[in-house]
Amino acid sequence: MMDWIPIVFASFKALVLGTGMFFAIKWHFDQDKKERRAVLRASGKVAAVFTLSLLGLVLATFVLSRSIGLDLTFP
Rank of each mutant, 00 (worst) to 15 (best):
Phe62Glu: 10
Ala24Pro: 00
Arg37Phe: 12
Leu17Pro: 01
Ser53Val: 09
Met21Phe: 11
Lys26Thr: 10
Ala48Phe: 11
Trp27Phe: 13
Arg66Asp: 07
Ala48Tyr: 07
Ile68Lys: 09
Lys34Cys: 07
Leu55Lys: 03
Val46Tyr: 05
Ser43Lys: 15
Pro75Cys: 02
Leu59Val: 14
Arg36Glu: 15
Val8Trp: 09
Trp27Leu: 12
Ala42Glu: 15
Arg36Gly: 15
Leu52Tyr: 05
Ser65Thr: 11
Ile7Tyr: 01
Gly18Gln: 02
Pro75His: 03
Met1Gly: 10
Val58Ala: 08
Leu54Asn: 07
Gln31Ile: 05
Ile68His: 08
Phe23Asn: 04
Phe50Ile: 15
Ser11Met: 10
Arg37Trp: 10
Ala14Met: 06
Thr73Glu: 10
Phe23Val: 13
Phe62His: 12
Phe29Val: 09
Ser67Pro: 00
Ala10His: 03
Arg37Asn: 10
Ala24Gln: 06
Leu64Ala: 15
Phe74Ile: 03
Val58Gln: 01
Arg66His: 14
Leu64Phe: 14
Leu40Gln: 15
Asp71Ala: 01
Arg37Val: 15
Ala48Lys: 10
Lys33Glu: 12
Gly20Val: 05
Ile5Glu: 04
Leu57Asn: 04
Val16Cys: 04
Leu52Pro: 00
Gly44Val: 05
Phe74Pro: 00
Phe50Tyr: 11
Met1Phe: 12
Leu17Thr: 10
Val49Glu: 12
Phe12Pro: 00
Val63Cys: 01
Val46Trp: 06
Ile25Phe: 08
Ser67Gln: 10
Ala10Asp: 03
Lys34Ala: 11
Lys26Tyr: 12
Ile68Met: 13
Pro6Asp: 03
Trp4Arg: 12
Phe74Asp: 00
Met1Ile: 08
Val58Pro: 01
Val39Lys: 13
Ile68Gln: 13
Leu55Pro: 01
Val46Thr: 14
Val58Trp: 02
Ala10Ser: 14
Met2Lys: 13
Lys34Glu: 13
Ala48Asn: 09
Ile7Gly: 01
